[in-house]
């Protein structure tokens, strides 16, 4: 049981990082991306290849993953600097679909559909460490960074862009730089999550980095409450433990378990959105039309 809960907690921490970083883009800068799984994947492949080919050092893997994902996030920042709202959603959708194809085809780097197997357990300075501890530490650091950022002047700039972009521009804020920085931070965070994911699973393939995964991460942010510190984390824990918890229901016939779980899961999401549109921790009064 402990091992089971530890595994769930590790995944929850990893997805907590994903949701928290996406929240920086969505909740603070108003950049709606459904391509977060792309950067999750980039980080996972980078971390996995490093561990497989060079050294299974967890810290190094996370740093490299963050650099790769953060660096390539310029692909995402490019449209982010040009368009807003629905347009950006569609641009990120395009990026996600292209990336899925590339992940499948670039077999030398990603292993394609077959994926990368036998990724070694994470080490720090030659000592094996549990991924749970790593993931929790990374999560705390990222939440801390988010909190500091949200309070500082950078956070105010981002919120100004989110609420009234033209006004922020008129006030002399450097919108492009702020947006690019927010995107780079979010994507580097996703890369760290990816490296942790690869080390935790010891197997990765393209099926973990599809549009469905991006949508799930987005749902975590929305369900928890955008623009709040703890909301995305709560959303991640909830959306991961709901299906896991449902699998304990003893009375469903084996062939219908999947469908019943998915129906309850879908219905829960919809009802939550109808009754708490700003998310669980979101402030109902400040819910806005994006």
């Amino acid at each position: 049981m402990t091992a089971y809960l530890a595994n769930l907690a590790t995944l929850a921490a990893i997805f907590g990082i994903l949701a928290a970083t996406l929240n920086v883009a969505v909740g603070y800068a108003g950049i709606f991306s459904v391509a977060h799984a792309v950067f999750f994947g980039l980080g996972a492949y980078a971390g996995a290849q490093l561990a497989l080919l060079v050294v299974p050092d967890a810290l190094l893997a996370m740093v490299v993953a963050a650099l790769v994902a953060g660096g390539l996030s310029l692909c995402l920042a490019l449209p982010a600097l040009r368009v807003r709202g629905e347009y950006f959603v569609a641009a990120s959708l395009g990026l996600q679909m292209m990336a899925t194809t590339l992940f499948t085809e670039a077999k030398g780097l990603t292993g394609g559909m077959g994926g990368l197997v036998g990724i070694p357990r994470p080490m720090i300075l030659g000592v094996e460490v549990p991924t749970l501890a790593l993931a929790l530490t990374a999560l705390v650091l990222i939440l801390l960074a988010t909190w500091l950022m949200a309070r500082g002047s950078f956070g105010r700039t981002l919120r100004a862009i989110r609420d009234a972009e033209s006004a922020a521009e008129a006030l002399g804020k450097n919108i492009n730089a702020a947006k690019a920085l927010a995107v780079a931070f979010a994507c580097a965070g996703a890369g760290v999550a990816g490296a942790l994911f690869a080390l935790h699973m010891s197997f990765v393939n393209v099926e973990s980095f599809t549009l469905d995964q991006s949508v799930l991460i987005m749902a975590m942010v929305i369900v928890g409450g955008t623009g709040t510190l703890w909301g995305p984390l709560l959303g991640a824990v909830l959306l991961l433990s709901l299906p896991a918890g449902l699998s304990f229901l003893p009375f469903i016939p084996p062939t219908e378990i999947g469908a019943v779980q998915q129906i309850l899961y879908g219905a829960a999401m919809t009802l939550l959105m109808i009754f708490r549109p700003a998310g669980l921790l979101g402030d109902m009064r400040t819910g806005r039309k994006a």
């Binding site: 769930l8 099926e207 896991a244 999947g258």
Partner: peptide
């Protein structure tokens, strides 16, 4: 006793299911 876990044919769900089957 049959204990069925849904994987949706995806690796991540499978790992959750497998740790449950093994440990719980």
């Amino acid at each position: 006793r049959l204990q069925a876990e849904d994987t949706q044919a995806l690796p991540q769900q499978a790992v959750v299911g497998m740790t449950k089957l093994v440990n719980v």
